[in-house]
């Protein structure tokens, strides 16, 4: 996974208050959060699949959902998409790095990001209203439309993290640290 390329050390906290008074180990402000409170907010999904919910979907169901909920802004991917002026980004392209526009097929490095973003922020006019099954299906449709999975593939918490995105190999970490070199 890409994350292993990042060199991040687990530093120990250092005391930043320099007031001269002794700072306590704990201040005692705030309260313990309940598991229910956490689960209500904890909607994120990682590339390793952590956070993916139960449920499943496929591209055929996803296409119908896409046409009714997404196409109004993102366009109908079956028609000419090179000239259309759309209110939202194109989501479908071929998978070559040089193709434009930047879309899922040629620019997105992780398939889990599609699920995470759809569930939290889409559709733009009704964010957070898709069911988990609907999110799996629209994700499947977008991956299929970008020629990354087959139409018959079922997406769920097990299969989605295994989808390898064509753009993943293009991504590099910024390694600049300041200094005179222009990079």
């Amino acid at each position: 996974m890409l994350a292993t390329m990042v060199k991040v050390s687990a530093q120990q906290p250092r005391n930043v208050e320099k007031t001269g008074t002794k700072t306590p180990a704990k201040y005692g402000f705030g309260r313990t959060a309940t598991l229910k409170e956490i689960s209500l907010l904890d909607i994120d999904v990682r590339p390793d699949g952590k956070g993916l919910p139960a449920g499943q979907g496929d591209a055929l169901k996803g296409k119908a959902l896409y046409l009714s909920k997404c196409a109004v802004c993102h366009g109908n991917n079956n028609t000419d998409f090179s000239t259309a002026k759309l209110p939202a980004p194109m989501l479908v392209s071929d998978t070559s790095a040089k193709s434009r526009p930047k879309a899922i097929g040629n620019y997105w490095p992780y398939a889990t990001t599609i699920f995470d973003y759809l569930r939290r922020a889409m559709p733009y006019n009704a964010p957070g209203t898709l069911t988990n099954d609907e999110v799996y299906s629209i994700t499947a449709y977008l991956l299929h439309a970008n020629k990354i999975i087959k139409q018959s593939d079922i997406l769920n918490a097990e299969t989605l993290p295994k989808v390898v995105m064509p753009a993943k190999k293009l991504f590099i970490m910024d390694d600049r640290k300041g200094g005179p070199e222009v990079k």
Partner: peptide
């Protein structure tokens, strides 16, 4: 591990020669 959210992958990244630089 990082979450690879939409804003740190498909946005706020940029081409550097034939690669895409992230985590700037």
């Amino acid at each position: 591990a990082p979450y690879m959210t939409r804003e740190e992958t498909s946005k706020y990244t940029y081409p550097v020669k034939d690669k895409i630089r992230m985590f700037s």
